[in-house]
Every structure is written in structure tokens, then in C-alpha cells.
């Protein structure tokens, strides 16, 4: 363990290469169905990894993450939507400062734009909401999610309202997904191991002490919120170009519940927890799908998620990957 700690940057690079080979093999050897599941695991992992920065490391228990996904999903969809289909789907053409009516954005910059817009939203909403603590912050951020989904429903001229947007080109593939997962894990890992992340940990542990040691909490809360929102926005964009259709209600309570559950079950404030949580709950969902359909008990999966959440909170509140602090003997 100590040896690995010596050159973590190198190991990260090696890990990235192994990941690339793994993704390549998966893409070529596994059937479409399994690749589909892997992509979904990847997208959810990006979401939980970014949620972990705010909720796990900085201790700001935000429930607004789905809103950032929605912002990213709609932004990237609108930017990258094919010109030919815009009229058919009653979607607006791009104004000249975004490239003009004859232009649709390539996938990558559209994703980045979605992430950036989510970050800007995070900064705007964070300035008031991050002043709140504990439950107040959670509830206020949940309110933000409701506001965003309401906007998605009512701004029909842009979002087509609750009908949603269909025929989104399926740009998302396993390479894009895992590239972004790699980037998000890398960024969060770098932040956590720098003075920025240390400031976030300090805020989580004791905000007053942090401030008495020279840390200005608001700055680092906003940073963690904005970086988390960026990757949530990207994940939203990947999601939109994967499912090929988005509707406002998809980015609402159930999605919020799912990603928060994944993070808690995997282990908040741990490196691998968010990925383990996301991957295992997605695996569970697909394993149970035949059972759900066979027994005709729809909602079985939600029931099992909820039960798992309660069980984990009671018996292993630090999550699967979390370690309990052992008392010194």
C-alpha cells in the first residue's frame, strides 16, 4: 500500500491504460445488452463521483444534483441536435452567437457547454443556498431541483415541455462514457489531495475550526458545488445522448433518490465508493428485471433500493467501501 502511495500519479496513468484496454475489449467481446449496462453504470458513476465531492468530501448534503444533470442534458441536446430535425420536433434553431441556424455543435463541446452551464447555475444557486447548513441546505437544494424541472416543463418553446425531446442522436458510447468517468475520478482525486480538497474536508469536519485556521468556507463550498455540477451536467448530456429521449420528470425525485442511495451504499467520502455503489445498484436493477417482469410486481426494484438503503444506514452507515475508525488500543 505504501509503495502505491509513493507514485499515485503513475498508477493513475496505468489505471487509465488498463481502463482503455478493458473498455476496448468490452466493446468488442460483449454483446450489446451488456455494453448497454456498462454505459449506464459509467454514466451513473460520473454522477455519484461528482456528488461525492459535495456530499461526501465537503459535507454539504445536496439533493439538487439531478437538476444539474437536467441542465447538462437539455443544454447539450439543444446544442447538438441535428438541424434537419429541429423543425420537425419544434426545436429552436441556434442563435447566431451559438453558431447560427445552419449549425449544430459536435458532441464533445456540447457536453462541456452543458457542464459549464450547470456550474454557472451551481454558483448562482450556491451563493444563497450554501449559507444554509445541514437539513436546511438539503431541503433548499431539493427546492432547486423542483424549480429546474418546472422550468423544463413550462419553457415549451425550448424544451417541448413535458412531452420531452425525442430522436436525440445516440452519440454516447462506451468510450465517451468511460473517458468522462476517468476525467471525473481524476479531477476529484486531484482536488481531494490538494489544499483545495483539504479545505473541503475541514469544512465538513468543523466549519468554525476551518475558518479559525484561515479557510474561507464559502469559497470552497462554491468550488466543490461548481465542480460537482460540471460533471453532473456532463453526465446529464451523456445520458440524453444515450437514452435518445429526455423528459423533465426523469430528472426529478426518483433520480435524486437513486444517486443519493448509490453514493450512501457505496460509501460517502471514499474514492471507490461512488463507483461501487452505482455499478452494484445498476447490476442489481438488471439482475432483478426478469424477476420483476416474471412476477409482475412492478416497483420491486425501487422497493429493494429503499430497503437496501435502510439496511446499510442501520448496519454499515459508512457504506460498502467506507471504513469504520477503529479505536486505538
Amino acid at each position: 500500500m505504501r509503495k502505491i502511495n509513493k507514485f499515485p500519479e503513475l498508477w493513475f496513468l496505468v489505471g487509465g491504460l488498463i481502463l482503455l484496454v478493458g473498455v476496448f475489449l468490452a466493446d468488442h467481446l460483449l454483446n450489446r445488452y451488456l455494453v448497454h449496462i456498462l454505459i449506464l453504470m459509467g454514466i451513473y458513476s460520473i454522477t455519484t463521483v461528482s456528488l461525492n465531492l459535495t456530499n461526501g468530501y465537503t459535507g454539504l448534503f445536496s439533493l439538487g444534483h439531478a437538476a444539474f444533470m437536467a441542465i447538462g442534458a437539455y443544454t447539450s441536446t439543444l446544442l447538438a441536435f441535428p438541424i434537419a430535425l429541429r423543425e420537425a420536433y419544434e426545436l429552436p434553431l441556434l442563435p447566431s452567437f451559438l453558431g447560427g441556424p445552419e449549425y449544430s455543435w459536435p458532441f464533445f463541446p456540447a457536453l462541456v457547454a452543458g457542464g459549464l452551464l450547470a456550474s454557472i447555475a451551481a454558483l448562482l444557486i450556491g451563493a444563497p443556498v450554501l449559507r444554509l447548513r445541514g437539513h436546511y441546505l438539503s431541503v433548499a437544494s431539493l427546492g432547486f431541483m423542483v424549480i429546474v424541472t418546472t422550468f423544463a416543463k413550462t419553457l415549451r418553446g425550448i424544451t417541448r415541455g413535458s412531452m420531452g425531446i425525442n430522436a436525440i442522436p445516440s452519440y454516447t458510447n462506451i468510450y465517451w462514457t468511460y473517458l468522462w468517468l476517468f476525467i471525473s475520478v481524476y479531477v476529484v482525486w486531484r482536488i481531494v489531495n490538494s489544499r483545495f480538497g483539504r479545505a473541503m474536508l475541514a469544512i465538513r469536519e468543523d466549519e468554525t475550526a476551518a475558518q479559525a485556521l484561515g479557510i474561507y468556507p464559502m469559497k470552497y463550498k462554491l468550488l466543490s458545488f461548481a465542480v460537482g455540477a460540471f460533471f453532473a451536467g456532463v453526465a446529464g448530456g451523456l445520458y440524453a445522448h444515450f437514452t435518445k429521449a429526455i423528459r423533465p420528470f426523469e430528472f426529478s425525485f426518483f433520480l435524486t433518490f437513486q444517486i443519493v442511495t448509490m453514493l450512501i451504499i457505496g460509501g460517502m467520502g471514499t474514492t471507490s465508493g461512488p463507483i461501487v455503489g452505482a455499478a452494484s445498484l445498476i447490476a442489481l436493477r438488471y439482475a432483478l428485471k426478469p424477476v420483476e417482469e416474471g412476477l409482475q410486481i412492478y416497483g420491486l426494484i425501487e422497493l429493494i433500493y429503499a430497503t437496501l438503503l435502510i439496511v446499510i444506514m442501520l448496519w454499515k452507515p459508512e457504506g460498502i467501501m467506507g471504513k469504520r475508525h477503529s479505536r486505538m488500543s
Binding site: 500519479e9 490538494s194 483545495f196 479545505a199 474536508l201 469536519e205 475550526a209 479559525a212 485556521l213 475508525h325
Partner: peptide, 30 residues
């Protein structure tokens, strides 16, 4: 008001914050 779930070393490192000058991007790209 120690940072109670963190190690002794981490408690001290956090407090070095004021004198660390490294900006966000140089931390990000090591």
C-alpha cells in the same frame, strides 16, 4: 474542535492552508 475523523497529519496539513499558494490548475495537473 479537531477535524475528528481525520488523521493527526491531515489536521496539521489542513492548517497549512494560509501559506499554500499553489493555484487550482497547477494542483489539478500536478
Amino acid at each position: 474542535r479537531l477535524f475528528s475523523s481525520l488523521t493527526v497529519e491531515m489536521n496539521l496539513k489542513i492548517a497549512s492552508h494560509l501559506h499554500a499558494r499553489c493555484n487550482f490548475w497547477s494542483s489539478l495537473f500536478s
